[in-house]
């Protein structure tokens, strides 16, 4: 990468985020709030002090994992947006493993089993998307979106029916996970181990895509699928493996939410980390390391939702409007690059 190109790849996304901030400020002013005070509140709630950093990082970890669900298939040229569904299924897999093992294994054993089953559930879910794409020609974007709805229906069915804890009246949920088996916090903080999972997953994904023959084959396929097929690359297998890995990352995000945040599976699993992950992946231009960074930024914005509501009397959807603006501006910024990037 030449100097000009690396400069471009830093300046354009930064400029895009700044421009989105300006648009958001105008929007807030239009809605009757003082934009400068809103920026200040967001900053304070997201990065102002150690406790707000912790809130931010707690939200960043599922975002990192969820983002990989879009970022990895994107390297193959696939637009997969089944993050929410894979996350929900991963959460279901995790709670099934956690509840059925109970206390028959030491906590680390139960947690490993929860993570593994969550990853397999999420992975198979997205691998199915890849399978349909490659072997049936079904558009992966639409099928993965539809499968989000199917996964959420499955979650509703299970938590309202077969897996329901009768004592969960207001918010139907599964039985709670044994306290012992819950994912602990990092020593001295309120941040759970999910952050480590997220960071490790992003680093591994980066190495896999950028530094291994497998990743090279995947990127080649993404560049030109015909050429890859001609060169004898196993395109079908690549698609299945990458989609499985992508889904298992989102599944792990579901496991983290169940095992560290909620302690049980319920509607709270589908609070928008899926769509947030899509946004992160696109803003990071599908680079796993950049995705970790962008997740922290978006985690901060999500963490500030409460403050915007309490202090500025802005509805909670303000955060959604901001995300939409960032997404639109970042997409527009794609057209500013001199030559095809990445």
């Amino acid at each position: 990468m030449t100097f000009a190109k690396s400069l471009e790849s830093v300046l354009i996304p930064l400029g895009a985020i700044l421009f989105a901030l300006v648009l958001f400020g105008l929007f807030c002013a239009f809605a009757g709030a003082n934009p400068v005070e809103v920026y200040h509140s967001i900053y304070r709630a997201a990065f102002g002090q150690w406790s707000s950093w912790q809130n931010t990082l707690i939200r960043a970890s599922p975002l990192m994992l969820s983002a990989l669900c879009t970022a990895l298939p994107a390297r193959l040229g696939l637009v997969v947006i089944g993050n929410e569904g894979a996350l929900v299924l991963g959460g279901l897999g995790a709670i099934i493993a956690g509840l059925s093992l109970g206390e028959s294994l030491p906590p680390w054993g139960v947690q490993t089993a929860m993570a593994l089953l969550g990853m397999v559930f999420g992975g198979v879910w997205i691998a199915l998307v890849g399978f349909l794409r490659h072997y049936r020609g079904v558009n992966e974007t639409i099928s993965s979106l539809l499968m989000n709805y199917i996964a959420i229906a499955l979650l509703n069915h299970l938590v309202e029916g077969p897996m329901r804890d009768p004592s969960s009246l207001n918010k139907p949920s599964t039985f709670p996970l044994a306290v012992l088996n819950r994912l602990p916090d990092l020593p001295g903080t309120r941040i759970h181990y999910g952050l480590i999972y997220g960071l490790v997953a992003c680093i591994l994904a980066y190495i896999l895509i950028q530094r291994t023959p497998f990743g090279f084959a995947a990127r080649t396929t993404g560049g030109n699928i015909r050429a890859a097929q001609m060169a004898g690359l196993p395109v079908g297998r690549l698609i299945l493996i990458i989609c499985f890995l992508a889904g298992s990352c989102a599944g792990l995000a579901g496991m983290v939410e169940v095992a560290a945040v909620h302690g049980r599976a319920n509607q709270s699993l589908n609070v928008g980390y899926g769509y947030g992950g899509i946004l992160v992946a696109f803003v990071a231009r599908h680079n796993p390391l950049a995705a970790a960074l962008v997740s922290v930024l978006l985690g901060g914005i999500l963490a500030s939702g409460g403050i915007l509501q309490r202090v500025h009397d802005l509805p909670d959807a303000t955060v959604l409007v901001f995300q939409g603006l960032v997404f639109l501006v970042v997409l527009f910024s794609e057209s500013l690059y001199q030559k095809e990037g990445v």
Partner: peptide
């Protein structure tokens, strides 16, 4: 990419509607 713009518009449109 028009599909990506669509996803962004889903987020933006629902944000506007809920706001």
């Amino acid at each position: 990419n028009d599909v990506a713009v669509g996803i962004a518009m889903i987020i933006f449109g629902s944000g506007i509607a809920f706001f």
